[in-house]
Nucleic acid binder design. Structure first.
Lengths: 204, 204, 204, 204
DNA sequence: CATGAATGAGGGTTCATTCAT
DNA sequence: TATGAATGAACCCTCATTCAT
């Protein structure tokens, strides 16, 4: 007899473990988090963990991929008619919304420091690459429509937008910051970046 | 037998190990770096390591304290006559200069994700506190002298300055960034922050 | 609900798993082979495996018993009229024929090193005992009929015959040997054993 | 201050662990023996084990290499004047002497069944190769001096000598055999092999 | 003071076995 | 009956730390 196994259940277990991993990684860093902790948080046995993820590494990669997917979804769901500048600011809001979960902030911050392992590095770059290429496309469009400054390459502007978000995440992770309350200032800061410094007053 | 040990030598060994620790922590994260690696990099035996630092923890704390001391030195060496606004921008430059060492960038980024251990957390907060109180004092002075915007509390402005530096560090650590080349834009962005958005054009 | 299960089918499944076990045990040794490997080779799920064998141990025992049964069958099928010496040499040929399957050679070799587990040891001894008692009976008969040397006890001769077969298996397992090509030499060697060294030439 | 560490001590510890490994491997097979058992037998902590051998694999390899070295030593210490035939029989005696230690017999038997791991396989082949090349050289010399049969290639004769020793080991390991008591018969059987079957009696 | 051998708790991972479907 | 998800004991190995030399 074949197996009437509900794939939804499997998916759910996977997400349960992914969520636990997010918590543990955010709390203790990657190397500092133990699979035992993750299992305890997820409420599963160690065997179950490795039934779903071949290694601890793979769990991290899965988390990153989930994040990349979310990013892709965000950009895919944007109305083509929305002005690119609005899309960029919308992305910032979207990112901030994620950072409302302090675990996400810590996770993002700690993930930045991961360089030792090869396949983690690869996954990180893939994740970054996803975001960056999406953002850069919108930046390029916005420049073409003269909605933002044109004196910086799209790539550079993209990196700076991500810089602001990273810095924001870092502060949220540090706990000296309420993501919600500071969101408007982040938006403002991004707009200042997109507009560039005001032209010097040349009135005689 | 007396100990004619040259305290200079001892200090040198200490710094040698501290430097190795910086390298290893930056490369593998705190938990990921092993004392064996650190010893190898420093060129000392494990026994020597534990002669100078009772604990791996203690090494991290020492590195943080060294950083805090540098920060104190920076502010202590400032000419009282320098306008506070200039001091702030000078601090940003100072921070960027540190980040030219990619190890420093990685270290700072990864240190942000450390929350599990009690005495590390304490050392981190002490380090942060040092910087923050120094910066806040200067911010306060600058506001009093109307050199920067006054619509944000000194604390909030301080955090945001540090946010920009953290974001910068994160991007340097990520490798998509040349600290030297991007420094001017960081300065510009800090100035935009300090000035606030330009008043809307009210000319009739 | 009745169980109209075809016992033939069940027997087939059993053999399928037994065959997979032979392969896996030969390839990785008993402890080194995993039930997962065996299941994969047999093309069944782990649940099915444990439906047929309560234990990995039990599978090994079953394989051994199958071998013992084959041995019993061989001797049972011998024509009573055949001279015992011929039966012995026939048994050697029979054993070599089995060893043409390199899995069998590896299996036999590795099984020799199994001493830790109690019920495995018991099964091994039972298997051995079967062969040994059958061979010994024939040896005894051959001695009585003066077809082979009489200066060794039947038991000792039996062990030495098995020694030659074991050594042969070991070399086949090692891969430096083609069972078919070397079979005649094994036969010759057994005959030398059965005859003993030639009487010294006493001719004046 | 440098280290006055006695390298003899290190060597002794190594041998202590090697001996424990021999015991454990012989008793439970390679995969079946646990590093914990080995440590217990050797009377050292697990850390010490891995201080001396990077892996369990490496321990097995070390044991094999020790054996190969012994074999080399045996042949190196042979007087050049000894007739090659005597050297061969001397080697057989030497091998039997080793097999007096039942652990050695079990170890040799179980090692024959190891094929899964790459570097173990390599070490095994190196070990085998050592013995085989030494034996073959002597066989060749003996043939040249017409001390043994010439109707088999040196390689083939070599393999058959090793076959007899392997079979002997297997029976010692099985416990149905006293190595010392059976040694003469092994010698006899080897001689039968070296001489070949007696020429058929052609006297009319 | 410097060294590295020794330690053992703990970490990631494997695997025989159970059981709901 | 057949399946494979779930389990946790046990495994191999790592690593911070201790201590005799």
């Amino acid at each position: 007899m074949p197996r009437p196994i509900d794939p939804t259940l499997r998916r759910a277990r996977r997400l349960q473990i992914i969520d636990a991993g997010l918590t543990a990684f955010a709390r203790h860093g990657y190397a500092g988090a133990t699979t035992a902790q993750i299992c305890r948080i997820a409420g599963v046995g160690s065997g179950t963990f490795f039934h779903h993820f071949p290694t601890k590494n793979a769990l991290l990669v899965a988390i990153l991929e989930l994040g990349a997917e979310e990013t892709r979804d965000f950009f895919a769901s944007q109305d083509q008619a929305t002005p690119p500048r609005e899309v960029l600011l919308g992305y910032v809001d979207h990112a901030v919304a994620d950072l409302t979960d302090p675990r996400a902030a810590s996770f993002i911050t700690m993930v930045g420091g991961l360089t030792s392992n090869a396949d983690i590095r690869a996954a990180l770059q893939a994740d970054e690459g996803t975001t960056r290429s999406r953002v850069r496309d919108v930046v390029t469009a916005a420049q073409r429509q003269r909605q933002i400054r044109a004196d910086m390459t799209p790539d550079r502007l993209t990196v700076w937008i991500m810089l602001l978000i990273d810095g924001f995440a870092s502060r949220v992770a540090g706990g000296d910051f309420d993501a919600g309350a500071e969101a408007p200032l982040l938006r403002e800061q991004v707009e200042l970046l997109l507009d560039g410094p005001p032209a010097p007053d040349l009135t005689p």
